[in-house]
Design a protein around this nucleic acid. Structure first.
Lengths: 231, 231
DNA sequence: CGCTGTCAAGAGCAGTGCTCTCGTTTGTGT
DNA sequence: ACACAAACGAGAGCACTGCTCTTGACAGCG
């Protein structure tokens, strides 16, 4: 368990990576119920040898899930970080939204793995909660910046029940984003919509309905920015 | 293929129903990759006998998918039909939204089947497009009623690119809902958000984040009604 | 009544996840 | 430099899967 930093550990890490790469490749064509034997075959090794690297199929799946969350989160973070005009909160929001969609379109099977229907019989370990929150935290950060800059419009919103409001306030404190409950609620709603938009497109719900996908997504992202009060 | 209405056809239909029921039961526990042998075992018959009723696993899955779409659509339709004050468009919207969520919570595995990540290797036949549009059509109908009654508020919205606008106008004509492009766009965005909200809750994305699920969903549904312009 | 189409059952094939055992390789502490 | 323990890959085997093919029984219609 301890880091031995030897040559052995190096080749082990490399082979582990190759296994995950092969698994990802298979994920794209065969879906979440990946075949360990097929992976082993592709790597030219015995199927039983895989168990030296992953205790079972779920373990391998967990590794893929964490990688996917990290990939999505990093896409969001770099998209925001690279955006020059930090005061243009709508621009940042749009850039991050596009990055999320772009990542999803580039790796649809990995997106489905983390944000699609849960794999039956698979229970996500707690290791995934950290990476999972990276993407929404980027969105929250943009809104928080706007709020701090006094650049948030007042927007009409349905009433927030007191107890729900209290819950949201607690969540804001827990993840350390300086947003009051109504704004956080709108931001979460917007994140929900973006997720729905990407999923609709990816899962085929838009087929024969909307052809101009880029424009349609941009329209939605802009609508959500407006709903939050970004300007 | 012709309806023979004989005794033979009756027992066949009954057994077909029992097979689907068993498959649904297994869907809830094991997920989309259902085991024909387990179904046959549950019904006390040989696994090979199932192939008299469904050509293969995908065929059985297709039947379940169509049933699920119909169930979701019917839940939406009856929820709207039962709502008394037809002029209260927000109320109808909320009732339908709650019905959609209620159906999903009652049959999470069936919801995942139709609106979750697509089953790998499975290609949905065209038979599913009809039932699939029932639920969103109910929502569109409410908005259309509001528009016809002149009960739609003017709401600010991002610009709609001309070509996208034309596409949406074509879609409105195709499904025969008298909505102009901007309103249809907002309605589709709202439907996307509701789907995202239900999926988030069902797929565990809200765990350790929002406890008061009913209130949170109502808030979102109300927000979407306001975004469309319902009052 | 007898033919014919429908039906269930069984064996069998190729594939799966996973376990256990068996030699071999390899890094490392002495 | 050497020996030892840990790590490793390969193979056989178990119980399971979807699916096909064949066989035999039975029931409905002319």
């Amino acid at each position: 368990m301890v880091e031995h930093t030897g040559i052995r550990a190096r080749v082990r890490a490399e082979l582990t990576g190759e296994i995950k790469a092969a698994a990802r490749r298979q994920l794209a064509t065969e879906g979440a119920n990946l075949s360990l034997r097929a992976i082993a075959r592709e790597l030219g090794m015995a199927s039983s040898a895989l168990y030296r690297y992953f205790a079972n199929r779920d373990d391998l799946l967990t590794a893929l899930i964490i990688d996917a969350y990290d990939g999505l989160g990093e896409a969001a973070e770099t998209a925001d970080a690279r955006y020059r005009r930090r005061g243009d909160h709508v621009g940042r929001w749009l850039a991050v939204a596009r990055a999320l969609r772009g990542w999803a379109l580039a790796a649809p099977s990995e997106y489905a793995l983390i944000l699609g229907s849960p794999v039956p019989g698979y229970r996500a370990p707690t290791d995934t909660t950290g990476p999972a929150s990276r993407a929404p935290l980027v969105l929250a950060g943009i809104v928080a910046d706007a709020a701090a800059a006094g650049a948030l419009d007042e927007v009409p919103a349905p009433p927030l029940p007191a107890k729900l409001r209290a819950e949201l306030t607690a969540v804001a404190g827990q993840v350390n984003v300086p947003l009051d409950a109504p704004v956080l609620a709108r931001m979460m709603l917007a994140w929900t919509e973006l997720y729905g938009a990407i999923s609709f497109e990816l899962f085929g719900q838009l087929d024969n309905l909307v052809g101009r996908r880029d424009e349609w997504f941009d329209y939605q992202a802009r609508s959500m920015a407006a709903l939050i009060g970004l300007r």
